[in-house]
């Protein structure tokens, strides 16, 4: 029936840059988030040029030096420049975040969409498996895996990815269940589409927006968790520069040399906050009901 009203609900076209820009501008927190993430990404991309020292160069004459003109964030217990280590550590932390989210999101999206489309027994079995994974505290799983496979950053990443998969599966499945009922999907089956084709052409595309939001929000969390794992010694190992590991070592000096833990800690806080703000912004952007505002 002819629906009346001035508010047109249509998904935001990704191609519509002008509109996207207009919407982003209206939300100062999203702008702040984008600026924070851009700052982090610039440091990650240009670490070798932005660092003032070799992050692993030991200088025993300048051990635990406070922040100064020569060492902006001070130095650590073997005289390495903390500023340079924070800059290089960002590469690792952000890289870990992206890796975890991409693996978990990718696997979760495919499994979840399939589960939703196929339904029936496949769906039941997959969802019960996910329930099992979900029912164990994620840090415990991660620690168990890290302990079993040996403490290394790669194993930590793998563990973190596995723990996160169920969240994406649930999200993608929920989306698939809704999309499956849309007339265009019904049409696709009439036009002769297989389940796989429906997944590829319709479900995957339309299930994407909430997954992207989840992934963006998750990036901050993954970086925090990577840092936490390194902090308890199950992630990055010495002498690799990594924020969590640096905070962890700096803990021994926290009373006299505050800068050791403070700067990498601040970097974690900054990055995680940035991704959270960005994630909230993206969620609002991709909400089709917002069109026209």
């Amino acid at each position: 029936m002819s629906a009346a009203g001035p508010i047109v609900a249509a998904p935001v076209a990704i191609s519509d840059w002008g509109f996207l820009f207009y919407r982003i501008r209206k939300s100062p927190l999203t702008v702040l988030g984008i600026l924070m993430i851009l700052t982090v990404l610039v440091f990650v991309a240009f670490a070798p040029w932005l660092a003032t020292h070799d992050p692993n160069a030991i200088s025993l004459r300048a051990r635990l030096a406070p922040p100064s003109g020569a060492h902006w964030f001070g130095t650590d217990e073997v005289g390495r420049d903390l500023y340079s280590r924070v800059v290089f550590g960002g590469r690792l932390s952000v890289g870990v975040g992206f890796f975890v989210v991409v693996i978990a999101g990718g696997v979760g999206a495919v499994v979840g969409c399939l589960s939703g489309i196929l339904g029936g027994r496949v769906d039941t079995v997959l969802m019960r498996i996910m329930d099992v994974v979900l029912s164990v505290p994620s840090l415990v799983v991660t620690m168990a895996l890290a302990a079993a496979l040996g403490p290394s950053l790669f194993n930590a990443m793998l563990a973190m990815a596995i723990v996160r998969i169920p969240f994406y599966v649930r999200l993608a499945r929920g989306q698939a269940l809704v999309i499956r009922e849309m007339p265009y999907v019904k049409g696709a089956y009439i036009f002769g589409a297989s389940n796989w084709q429906v997944l590829r052409w319709h479900v995957a595309r339309n299930a994407m927006p909430p997954l992207i939001v989840q992934a963006t929000l998750d990036l901050g969390g993954a970086i925090l968790m990577a840092s936490a794992l390194s902090f308890i010694g199950l992630g990055a190992q010495q002498p690799t520069a990594e924020w969590g590991a640096m905070v962890s070592t700096g803990r021994n000096f926290i009373l006299d040399q505050w800068w050791y833990s403070a700067f990498p800690g601040f970097a974690i806080l900054f990055t995680a906050t940035g991704f959270n703000l960005l994630g909230d912004g993206v969620r609002d952007l991709l909400d089709p009901r917002q069109k026209g505002r």
Binding site: P6, G18, F19, Y22, R23, G292, R293
Partner: peptide, 11 residues
């Protein structure tokens, strides 16, 4: 009028 991105809609 409804203010929108495309300018005000003279509804």
């Amino acid at each position: 009028r409804f203010p929108t991105y495309g300018g005000a809609v003279h509804a």
